[in-house]
Amino acid sequence: MKKIITSVFAALLFATPVMAQNVSVEITNLTNGIYYTPLLMATHPESTHLFQSGTTASANLQAMAEGGDTTGLISDLAAISADISDNPAGGLLAPGMSASATFPKGGKNTHLSIVAMLLPTNDGFVGLDALKIPNAKGVYTYFLNGYDAGTEANNEVINGGGAPGTLGIPADPGGNSGTGGTGITTSENNMTVHIHRGVLGDNDLNGGASDLSSTVHRWLNPVAKMVITVN
């Protein structure tokens, strides 16, 4: 008996340092009627950026923001040996819902980035740009903003247009949108990544300027809550 207990203690001693070295990240969708397309979370070196506000979006960021396609960004991250969590929600993340991912701690991947398209929007996304992960063990809460990729006019027309450069919104997963909108605008003034001004919407399901609903789809920042637990 005594020998068995000693063995267990020895196992615990060896196991504890390994188990302690991780960082868990939980994201909660704080909007009323906006879904996140499959999330991309990653830890990476300080110099890596999926996007930077005030600068032009990369083609791979554009593909994520206009159609939810994260494959290009994942290739970029894999090339620099980032730790990647691809689609931790297992699909869309609905309003009020949460998704989590766990990353190793220590080593070169000291910063955290997160992106997912805001659906239904033209090129809106929830974003976190290279946050330094805290070193000390603890629970840290942050709030994330909605960005506009600056790559597509916010016409607010749902026509299945999710390919980069195709004007329009792919779909409304919540089924609250209308049809027959004539389009809010055909131009974007700020063509760099910037803070999304929000959607306008209207209250006409069968026409008007927008296919979005002003009572369902609007938001104000922040659009996400993020809790980082450093173990």
Binding site: N145, I184, N189, I195, H196, R197, G198, L200, L220, N221
Partner: peptide, 19 residues
């Protein structure tokens, strides 16, 4: 565009924080 009579501003001038 959001129905304010007499507004000279359109939907492109709207903003959310941070600016």
């Amino acid at each position: 565009d959001d129905g304010l009579a007499g507004s000279a501003l359109d939907e492109s001038h709207r903003f959310d924080n941070p600016v």
